[in-house]
Design a binder for these strands. Structure first.
Length: 217
DNA sequence: AAGATTTCCAACCGCGTTTTT
DNA sequence: CAAAAACGCGGTTGGAAATCT
């Protein structure tokens, strides 16, 4: 026998999240920490599937996320990593802890792909040429921020794995980042994010939630 | 000013992997 | 060990907002 079923698919809500749902989800994760997603809809009463809860948390509610306005430096990192790792957005996102894989993926598809095409058409190569054969050379071409953080050893591993034809595609999950998230989310989850947010629509506004959440804590 | 078109991004879907019983 | 569910990832899409005609 396998595991017991987590939640039936009947009556599962879809579509945009409401502020109330966000508050419920954030409050629950503050109490229990992220993970064990199948328990979230059960324990909170949210009419959402576990998948949707995880996605909402990791792509939007997770503290420390920066949204919009990618810097040219970040662009450089993304372009470079994409050329090395391919469309492995989760792996790329692990080098930009403030950005989500979904955000990077969106930014690549909507901005960078076009930009790159344009620049290549003009003969100005935005990204460095194809990855060098040795990992030492690879590291030498990295953007500064990648050197500065403590992920660079894994970067070598990812780059080598990506260039290998026998790469195991399930091996690039990033426990470091997951751990970081778990540690940082427990205190003042919205303060830094709310400060960065400038959009007026709900779906992009953190201070809505932080204000509402004030009444809970 | 209003309708048409394009852009952008939050969220869904499908699938491979991992975990649990 | 096998089976089944949960997890996590990348691709895709729906619709709101922005821009154009």
């Amino acid at each position: 026998m396998g595991r017991p079923p987590c939640c039936d698919k009947v009556g599962v809500k879809k579509g945009p999240w409401t502020p109330e749902e966000d508050i419920i989800l954030v409050s629950y994760i503050q109490e229990n920490g992220p993970g064990n997603w199948r328990a979230v809809p059960i324990n909170t009463g949210l009419m959402r599937c576990s998948k949707s809860c995880r996605l909402r948390w990791t792509n939007y509610l997770r503290p420390g996320i920066r949204r919009g306005n990618f810097t040219t430096h970040e662009e450089g990192i993304i372009v470079h990593l994409q050329s090395l790792l391919g469309n492995r957005w989760a792996a790329i996102a692990s080098y930009l802890p403030q950005r989500t894989d979904n955000d990077i993926k969106n930014y690549w598809n909507t901005h960078l792909k076009k930009k790159l095409k344009k620049q290549q058409a003009m003969g100005a190569i935005f990204a460095p040429p194809p990855p060098p054969s040795s990992s030492a050379e690879t590291a030498a071409n990295l953007p500064a921020a990648v050197h500065l953080d403590n992920h660079h050893h894994r970067y070598h591993h990812d780059a080598i794995a990506a260039s290998s034809s026998t790469v195991d595609h399930g091996c690039y999950s990033n426990p470091e980042v997951t751990q970081h998230t778990t540690i940082t989310m427990r205190r003042s989850p919205f303060a830094d994010v709310a400060a960065d947010c400038s959009s007026s629509s709900y779906a992009s506004s953190m201070d809505n939630i932080s204000r509402l959440l004030g009444g809970f804590m």
